[in-house]
Design a protein around this nucleic acid. Structure first.
Lengths: 87, 87
DNA sequence: TATTTATTTAGATAATTATCTAATTATTAA
DNA sequence: TTAATAATTAGATAATTATCTAAATAAATA
């Protein structure tokens, strides 16, 4: 959970996840949507990867990123658990 | 969302929420469960309050903390939205 | 009223992190 | 094989943060 919440504690990374929710994208396509440098985006993607929130796959010179819904599901369960079982 | 994720990006604060899920507690009772100082716990409680994840109510010398499930619900919706609508 | 108890505020410090530019690696195309 | 494109790594810096001790505030009790 630590890596997941660390990854989500940044507006840029949350936006990246919302973009990847719609379609898989390359690192460059993701970077285009922001006004920060490519290395910074690369760093954000690395943090998302370490949290297993995204996958990456290299195709030729491009690296495609996609969201990992099973980790999102884990997060969902954590939040649901927080809501319930209050006496 | 920023304040919510900032608040959740700490294992101590997440544990506090899990404790408050079970029952309301005073600041002192919460602090007892951890090996860090009371001022540090007070600081964590402040961050949880700023995120509206907890309420506090003073009763005599004691301050009772309780979880705010409506904000947990907002978080739940954010996560649910992240899961769905991928084409 | 003076002391104890509960909690927060203030101020300091070490660690983490978001960002940048420059350099490197890997792949494709001329 | 050289040049161009895509992406990451390296190294630096400013800002944020988790923690501490000491001091302050507020309420209860002797």
């Amino acid at each position: 959970m630590n890596n997941i919440f660390k990854a989500l504690n940044d507006a840029t990374r949350r936006e990246i996840l919302e973009m990847l929710k719609e379609r898989d994208m390359t690192a460059g396509e993701i970077a285009e949507q922001f006004s920060i440098s490519k290395p910074s985006i690369s760093h954000h993607l690395d943090i998302l990867k370490r949290a297993d929130l995204v996958y990456s796959e290299k195709k030729g010179q491009f690296v495609y990123y996609s969201i990992n819904t099973s980790i999102v599901e884990d997060l969902l369960q954590w939040v649901i658990n927080l809501k319930s079982s209050k006496s």
